[in-house]
């Protein structure tokens, strides 16, 4: 078999339609059980609990009857970094090469047995998508039987994060190899959160492949590091040039505005420019 990505690198990414998200948390639950994410007896302190996928609640800050709420699921953004060269904020700072950028898939990996727990990557990530194992994982009696054999559980003292369910990609590739196929079909590699979302808010696929839904939804601009050309789509903290592979879509202007930081009056200017550009 020829090498899978030779000359045709994938760029796996996610599109989340915030207008469809109801904030039910299915994606979080699916993620935790799929990836053997440990939990504590008391999970009330959200600053030291591990949630690879976390749903944030945003409000428009207005009072009744104008108040509006938006739920924003936040997985790891798998940033391409400045210029989309793979120097993600976290990858570029890890001293022991324990987190790496895969140019064949665009996925930012985390090598648990390599990480020695300095936590520099957590400081570098503006999305708080990285988590430290402050404790050894402890499963309630009998629950070890339910752990996924495809994902290694993590020990105390290392950092972990969303992997875009990379083990599913490996399984899909293995299957394709057995069936003597060169490619993995769109539906063969889907993340657990995508499949669990009851309202179909999450779409996953190859951003480089025009046939994939994610590409069609956001129409990424290859000349601008994948910036969405769909005016209703945005990426979190676009201005920092982290170039995430997770896109959000919303019809609501205040939601799109909440995706980044703007000085007074800047948003209006940026909006005008964007509308002009699309005319």
């Amino acid at each position: 078999m020829t090498q899978q990505n030779h000359g045709n690198a994938h760029k796996f990414g996610m599109v989340i339609d915030l207008d469809k998200c109801t904030g039910c948390g299915s994606c979080m639950v699916a993620c935790m059980s799929e990836n053997n994410v440990p939990f504590k007896e008391d999970e009330s302190n959200k600053k030291d609990s591990i949630t690879w996928m976390r749903v944030y609640k945003l409000t428009n800050g207005k009072s009744f009857p104008d108040t509006d709420v938006c739920y924003l699921p936040r997985p790891c953004m798998h940033c391409g970094g400045k210029g989309d060269h793979g120097h993600s904020p976290c990858v570029s700072v890890c001293p022991a090469t324990a987190t790496d950028y895969d140019y064949g898939t665009g996925i930012v990996s985390q090598i648990y047995t390599r990480c020695f727990g300095c936590r520099y990557c957590m400081g570098a990530c503006p999305y708080h998508a990285r988590f430290f194992n402050w404790w050894d994982p402890k499963w309630p009696e009998g629950m070890e039987e339910y752990l996924s054999p495809d994902v290694s559980p993590r020990m105390r003292g290392v950092v972990e994060k969303c992997s875009f369910c990379f083990h599913r990609y490996q399984a899909a590739k293995d299957k394709a190899y057995l069936e003597e196929r060169d490619t993995v079909a769109e539906e063969e590699y889907q993340t657990a959160c995508t499949q669990a979302c009851p309202s179909g808010a999450i779409t996953f696929g190859d951003l480089n492949n025009p046939d994939h839904a994610v590409h069609q939804l956001v129409n990424p601009d290859p000349h601008h590091c994948g910036r969405p050309r769909n005016p209703k789509a945005f990426r979190l903290l676009e201005r920092l040039e982290t170039n995430p592979k997770v896109y959000y879509i919303s019809e609501r202007e205040w939601v799109r505005k909440a995706g980044d930081n703007y000085l007074d009056g800047e948003w209006e200017k940026a909006k005008m420019k964007k509308t002009k550009g699309h005319e």
């Binding site: 022991a96 020695f116 727990g117």
Partner: peptide, 9 residues
């Protein structure tokens, strides 16, 4: 560091 025994990494 979280895993002092791996400091040499």
């Amino acid at each position: 560091i979280g895993q002092p025994l791996r400091g040499w990494f």
